[in-house]
Design a protein around this nucleic acid. Structure first.
Length: 571
RNA sequence: GGGCCGCUAGCUCAAUGGCAGAGCUGCGGACUUUUAAUCCGUAGGUUCAGGGUUCGAAUCCCUGGCGGCCCA
């Protein structure tokens, strides 16, 4: 065995982003030293662009950002696959949209009521807004614009000249039936981000043609190429609508390369060095594998470094799944959490690890972890891995992302807006009392986190888990109370005005059982007293919110207001 | 039927062939205060199973099991 001289240039405990950056920079230097390094994502705006698709963007974003931090030029391109065909009318859309099946997404009208000119723009817009908020800098490339402007003319003519080579490559992986376009594959396509994994690859009776025209009459892609003449570039096609014609590919701009050729063509065209893809591309015969062959054999390019990224799951989601008919989008997530937190979720897990994004109670824990991490990093006590994932989440090479000036715990904010039902005056009063030594002066200091917590409470937390202050007193329960319990309620009601502050009410609620036991107010709790206190609290909760537990009583009492408290306690 | 990924503490996950670790939960304690608040401490392990390689395996190889995703 030969002596091994293994040079380890990278630090051994670098995170995944750093390691990919090392790899990408090295590869880019081999290919074209000094040139801007291209990282890429591909998104199909065929429907809501969900949090799984966000991984398609965040993965190259983080790598490109690291490359920039190291002082290299890098660009992150997002290919909008808006020239793909409209596959299926999603649930909740007027069935008449079926007439548009087969048209490019940019030729399909947007869903009813949309302000956008077409289907693709309708779904791109919220994603673009979310990416801006997330600090993701990118150059968007509309494939509709590229194809219809003839930008890919040479590549298309080349692919047609090399169609036998392409066919041969595809044949290596074709399993059984040559024609296998299924009607149900758009769910699969919707579940990943890089395009249609299993789409018509161009095999037809007249031979193999990697180019598919959209019909010049009906705009749909129900076309079949019947002949192609290389010298004149004349291409003949028929359409299921009855139309047939011959066009010159040297001029024709209404069609596209089939997906498995389109993708590698763009790797070569843009010089992509890094582009991840969903796990569905990891099998033999997938477009990533096949593309790796085609990009070299046909387009003289190289396959990008392309990690497979795993599934992003969601936990929770009370209303959204039913009303929107699908998985939540980045915009949905940004309604309940700040951008750095969302970035963190994608940065801290390696691409091949699946993870879940919490829309349920777990979001409180996620936020707690984030706050602790923030504190540790600020104090300099975080370990290296945590520090780097924090850095990637909190800002980009351009600068830090906006933060909440007073980042009060999310669970506290959620609990407070739950009982104040978002009334600013009461919310401010309670927030002010949280830290009397340094009270906040305006709700704006707690924003945007406050608003996000409120949005979470109102849209994600099921009604039966929320605090619902009773409208009317529980007469039946009040009537059934014994003398001691009546007395306790009277003592509390009497003391309300005098103790109307967070601290005062705290003393009062713990004090009532002491008074009843004939003990002084500064008594240390005894086991008996503790039982009495607990019972007293349970009684109050039941009378106020119809349950035996709830938010801390002083907070709850403040939020409910003295008059209503007296009424609910029958005083 | 095929492919990919995963399986480590009750839960979510680290540990890139070299002493199995964190957070949360739990348990114990503190704060005149047992709540849906805060702080401190502490417990917790046959690393899915079996075999192999190695001085040494959570890590590499093989077989099997379970789970997720995808393709057919």
């Amino acid at each position: 065995m030969r002596k091994e001289v293994q040079v380890v240039a990278q630090s051994t405990d670098a995170d995944w982003v750093s390691r990919f950056a090392d790899e990408v920079i090295a590869e880019a230097e081999r290919r074209a030293p000094g040139k801007t390094i291209v990282c890429a994502s591909g998104l199909s705006p065929s429907g809501p662009i969900h949090l799984g698709n966000l991984r398609e963007v965040m993965t190259p974003h983080l790598v490109a950002d690291e490359i920039r931090r190291r002082g290299h030029d890098a660009v992150h391109i997002i290919s909008w696959d808006d020239y793909d065909r409209f596959r299926k009318v999603p649930a909740g859309i007027d069935p008449s949209w079926a007439e548009h099946i087969g048209k490019p997404l940019t030729s399909v009208p947007a869903p009813a009521g949309s302000e956008y000119p077409n289907w693709a723009e309708h779904f791109k817009a919220p994603m673009i807004a979310a990416l801006a908020e997330l600090g993701v800098e990118f150059r968007g490339i509309s494939q509709t614009e590229m194809y219809t402007s003839g930008a890919y003319r040479e590549q298309i003519l080349l692919a047609m000249r090399e169609r036998n080579t392409i066919d041969t490559v595809l044949d290596r992986y074709r399993t059984k039936k040559p024609a296998k376009v299924s009607a149900d594959e758009d769910e699969a396509a919707a579940a990943e981000g890089s395009g249609a994994a299993g789409e018509d690859d161009g095999k037809a009776a007249a031979g193999y043609f990697p180019y598919k025209p959209y019909c010049s009459v009906c705009e749909r892609d129900l076309t079949t190429v019947t002949a192609y003449d290389e010298a004149s570039t004349e291409l003949a096609y028929t359409c299921q609508c009855g139309h047939s014609e011959t066009v010159k590919l040297s001029e024709h701009n209404r069609g596209k390369l089939v997906w498995k050729v389109d993708w590698p063509m763009r790797w070569a065209y843009e010089g992509v060095v890094f582009e991840p893809s969903g796990v569905d591309h990891s099998s033999p015969g997938s477009s990533f594998q096949v593309g790796g062959q085609i990009v070299g054999e046909v387009f003289g390019g190289k396959q990008p470094i392309g990690p497979m990224y795993a599934f992003v799951g969601i936990s929770g989601m009370a209303k959204m799944s039913s009303s929107k008919g699908g998985v939540p989008t980045a915009a949905d997530a940004l309604q309940i959490m700040e951008a750095p937190l969302l970035r963190w979720l994608y940065a801290r897990r390696k691409p091949n690890q699946s993870f879940k994004i919490a829309f349920d109670q777990e979001i409180q824990r996620t936020y707690d972890e984030w706050d602790v991490l923030t504190r540790k990093v600020t104090e300099g006590t975080a370990n290296e891995a945590d520090t780097s994932s924090y850095g990637r989440a909190a800002g980009t090479a351009t600068g830090p992302l906006p933060v909440t000036p007073r980042p009060l715990p999310y669970r506290t904010l959620a609990s407070i807006v739950d009982i104040t039902t978002g009334q600013d005056e009461q919310t401010l009063r309670i927030l002010r009392d949280l830290d009397p030594a340094d009270p906040i002066t305006s709700l704006d200091e707690a924003r945007p986190r406050l608003d996000l917590a409120q949005h979470w409470i109102t849209t994600q937390v099921p009604a039966d888990q929320r605090t619902q202050v009773r409208e009317e007193a529980d007469k039946e329960l009040l009537d059934s109370l014994g003398d001691t319990q009546r007395e306790s309620l009277r003592l509390l009601a009497e003391g309300l005005d005098e103790h109307w502050s967070l601290d005062g009410l705290t003393t009062l609620v713990y004090g009532v059982p002491k008074i009843q036991a004939g003990l002084p107010a500064d008594t240390k709790p005894t086991p008996e007293l503790k039982v009495a206190q607990r019972n007293f609290f349970a009684l109050l909760y039941t009378l106020l919110v119809s349950r035996d537990t709830g938010p801390r009583l002083p907070t709850l009492l403040l939020a409910v207001g003295a008059d209503r408290v007296r009424r609910l306690l029958g005083q």
